[in-house]
Design a protein around this nucleic acid. Structure first.
Lengths: 214, 214
DNA sequence: GTTTGTTCCAAACAAACGTTCTATCGCCCA
DNA sequence: TGGGCGATAGAACGTTTGTTTGGAACAAAC
């Protein structure tokens, strides 16, 4: 995998912007002019390289038959709809996540852009945060947290945890320390808490937080 | 508003499918063959009608310069790409937002799902937060804030403000109080600051905050 | 019955466009 | 010194493709 030159990066950026603005790809000559290239052959030369590197896809002899492989298709993309299966709040149990629930209808959903979407979206779900108890995780009342149901929790992952003894749900970074677990707030100004591992139920890993204002 | 004929509907469907499959629009002759039309002029004639009806947009003399105006792309939803024009950090000036910048190429972008997108997206831009100085707005290092450039700032709106005297950028809720402005942190545990109105440059209204983990 | 508007045809034209050919320049290396 | 190579040029070529022209069939309006 070779590197991508400044000029090639500029071409990519131009194509991306052009597609966003026009809804179709620029011609070779459009690229030539926009990127200050003296000849269409040089554009072709660089496009050939970008194609070899897998950055773009070209359809031979087709006008503007140019696609970005790692595409946002010029603005239109499949948005993954993730169901908001309930709320998370201190003192209220976390909703149990089952496949049934994930596939059930009628739930409010939140659309995730591709940047926020991991390869597999089927085990994603979302919770709406109630109250201000998650504020040490920099999460406000009304925010939506997107989680992935996974057994693969690593040290440092932000997780949704249920503390049995305290009867409290919380969003914190998790670190295993022997038979205890340290829960570290996202807010660097705040102190971590350490609890016995048996006191913690991990319900999912936080993938994203979305706050809508206005 | 005239009706859309069977033939025209077939053309629309074909364009939609072709775009989904190829990433670019079909040519007039592609349409001609696919829709069993004997002449390209007939295709042109019908495209002209579809354009008049506002169903499609055409760019004259541009190969495959064909867009579907109200395109949900067969189930996929339009994601608005918003450029991340820079960073926001205390002590660093906010990037000046101009139309040029908004339309310039080569910027990293963030895709916004429809729920986060207001009717008009053209004056949206995004900033990536550097450092922990925005933590009282519940915003972490690395978060992306989506802003709208608008003169219509109302009391209680969350804004990106530049404090001239302090040389500090900040994200807070804004309240006008006579010739002073009160900036209220989103974090309910923290105290507001009050500054002279002349000391504040408002650079935009915060529309959404997106935090990506994992 | 003529007019008028719509829809459709076939062919030709000209602009847009991808591709290719040849040549040049700088750079590394034997 | 010279050959190989990546990158760049300028121009020409031939296809793709949007557009136009002149006409015909048909139905509704007058």
């Amino acid at each position: 995998m070779a590197k991508i030159s400044t000029r090639q990066q500029r071409i990519i950026d131009y194509i991306k912007g052009y597609r966003r603005e026009h809804g179709y790809a620029p011609s070779v000559r459009d690229i030539q002019i926009a990127c200050d290239i003296s000849s269409t052959s040089v554009v072709d030369y660089n496009l050939r390289i970008l194609q070899r590197e897998g950055v773009i896809r070209r359809s031979p002899d087709i006008s503007r038959g140019l696609e970005l492989v790692d595409d946002d298709r010029g603005g239109a993309v499949e948005v993954v709809s993730v169901p908001i299966i309930g709320a998370i709040a201190a003192g209220a149990p976390l909703p149990v996540v089952t496949s049934d629930i994930l596939q059930s209808e009628g739930l409010e959903t939140v659309g995730l852009p591709p940047e926020l979407t991991p390869r597999v979206a089927s085990d994603l779900y979302a919770l709406r945060v109630k109250g201000y108890s998650m504020i040490d995780a920099l999460i406000d009342d009304g925010d939506v947290v997107v989680l992935r149901r996974t057994p693969d929790i690593r040290n440092g992952d932000m997780v949704a945890a249920w503390l049995r003894a305290e009867e409290e749900a919380t969003l914190k970074r998790l670190y295993r320390e022997g038979d205890h677990i340290r829960l570290q707030p996202a807010n660097v100004q705040m102190q971590p808490i350490v609890v016995p591992a048996t006191n913690v139920e991990v319900h999912g890993k936080v993938v994203a937080v979305i706050r809508r204002l206005e």
